[in-house]
Design a protein around this nucleic acid. Structure first.
Lengths: 337, 337
DNA sequence: TTGTAAGCGTTATCAG
DNA sequence: CTGATAACGCTTACAA
């Protein structure tokens, strides 16, 4: 009862050799059916759990995918993770998760953990700091150890690997155009994910749309650790400089709504709002939030599927670069006829 | 550049023995300072990452804690995870996370992964199915492999290990009493986490309070996969059978608010609402939600600290059973003078 | 059909 | 101070 059960333990009990046990548990044709049954039964009885360390030292695959995300609190990542976990399970893989906490240092540490613990592949979204400093040496380490990499959401074009992301620029542009077409002239872009590829692209798309309609663009950035810039927003509205907000995430969107309404303005009459990520809050908020559905669960599933198929040699040599289409869901914070 | 860098690689380059390299990298006093410097420099230059498999086979500690949670989408677990991750980092540990998805089968698989990958300890919250079926054999496996266990949030008294949870019964009772004292007579308890220890205790606390005030209790349970029972709630209100809701989590609380308000009732005039978990939505919702702060980040931190201190032999032999105090935050969905 | 032996990367023990 | 050797648990040629 006491002590770990190993192959050797099982072998000793049955007075046979460890290699025979190993083969039997791998259903090798070399072993007689009778013995296999006996060994399998004992293994079950003794609750034998193979030691991944031992197994992996012989450089076999671990059927484990490492996932590194910058943060778990935003709905986007939580939901993407959910999708990854589900897909991995369906394809017979396990996942281990590390959180980089938007820090480069932690991201490097996480990569080391992944390498060290022998995952077959890594799916990750880059930390804010990584993207700001453009330091990517640690990602190259993975290649050296023969570990596949798939980037999702926060991707980087200079890295040669499979990528899964949404067409952020296009989507931001489209949302901005819709706001403009609904009658807004002073659309602002609100973001708290400065310096990320995702943010850059959304900003770009937004600015392109504004430029096309010859409108002045206004970017309101803030650090999530600081206070929400409610005052700034309300002042802009009061000065007639803002009549719509495209928010880079769901939480900023609802905080915008709250501060705008609390100041006595009406939504969408005075100010329209669209938020990225169509999370649980969007539909249930009052007023319900018009938002951009990033199909985060699908993105997670696709990223996981991609890395596993890559590992299984099912993909072409050229890296894939999925740009998923998203959709705008109009609810009560935007005007429409 | 190609191929993994191992101790042997480094040793070969310097034409010394692997054991010397190992000792040097562990800062052993046996090795001369000069050589240590040389070896450390090479290790850095070659981006040497020690292989946890090899190391762990010598049954040393991995400084890794496994975390198993039933779900990541609810704010409670995401935030608790955040706290765990932070504390682990501060104490020099890494975490790996598995999601049981409320399923016993997945929970067992996750435990196997943890054992197999050699974590030093496991912090977990039991899945709904595990608690419903009361199957706990797999947890005993951990002991056998010398892996410490700390249960948090969804704990089970019959398991002999350290535990961290909140005093759910007391808290539910107190919240119910406050609702009653504010003038509500027909308080209902709304839950979508049926069959969990947490839910049982909250229900118990709620029922105790109702009994004490000689009021009839009413439990409204629903499956998160099914539709929200908005109709049922509104019917009860219309029939004068419900004037307050104690919701087992934040999302149910805001869904309640939404459906109640959308039906033309006023909050808190007609119906008061208190929700468990004071997440990001509570403060930002309109009306802002009165809620029970479970200090989830603190809970996560404490659970992590406990397991690490247990591993470090800093705790008394008797298992600890923390019951954290929580606090009720009154906002706009409850009446008060 | 079963067993033996070597080796994966690391570290602890013991010699030199 | 440095090196050889064995061992951790497992797989896999190769031998019996």
């Amino acid at each position: 009862m006491q002590g770990k059960t190993t192959l050797k333990t099982l072998a000793e009990i049955l007075e046979i050799s460890p290699s025979t046990v190993s083969k039997a548990l791998h259903d090798s044709p070399e072993i007689s059916e009778k013995l296999k049954v006996k060994i399998r039964e004992l293994a079950k009885k003794e609750h034998y759990i193979p030691n991944a360390m031992g197994r992996n030292l012989k450089s076999r695959e671990t059927k484990t995918i490492g996932v590194i995300i910058p943060d778990i609190l935003p709905h986007f990542f939580a939901k993407a993770l959910y999708g990854m976990e589900a897909m991995a399970g369906e394809m017979g893989y396990q996942i281990v998760i590390c959180i980089s906490n938007e820090s480069l240092k932690k991201e490097i540490k996480s990569i080391h953990t992944m390498i060290s613990s022998g995952v077959d592949g890594v799916v990750m979204s880059l930390s804010q700091e990584t993207q700001a400093k453009m330091q990517i040496e640690h990602l190259l380490q993975l290649k050296k150890y023969g570990i596949e990499l798939v980037l999702f959401d926060r991707v980087l074009s200079i890295i040669n690997c499979d990528k899964v992301s949404i067409n952020d620029a296009l989507q931001a542009e489209q949302a901005t155009v819709e706001l403009i077409k609904s009658g807004c002239k002073k659309v602002g872009y609100l973001t708290n994910i400065l310096n990320t590829s995702v943010d850059d692209q959304r900003k770009q798309g937004y600015q392109d749309a504004m430029k096309r309609y010859k409108l002045r663009n206004r970017v309101i950035g803030f650090n999530p650790k600081d206070e929400f810039p409610a005052k700034q927003i309300n002042t802009l509205i009061a000065e007639g400089k803002l009549d719509a907000i495209l928010a880079a995430n769901e939480l900023s969107a609802i905080m915008t709504i709250k501060s705008v309404l609390d100041s006595g303005y009406e939504i969408p009459k005075d100010v329209s709002v669209i938020g990225f990520t169509n999370g649980v809050i969007s539909a249930n908020f009052r007023p319900s939030l018009s938002s951009i559905d990033q199909h985060e669960e699908e993105q997670g599933r696709l990223a996981m599927e991609t890395i596993i198929e890559r590992l299984q040699g099912k993909l072409p040599k050229e890296p894939l670069d999925y740009k998923l289409r998203t959709s705008i869901i109009h609810r009560e914070t935007t005007r429409h006829e």
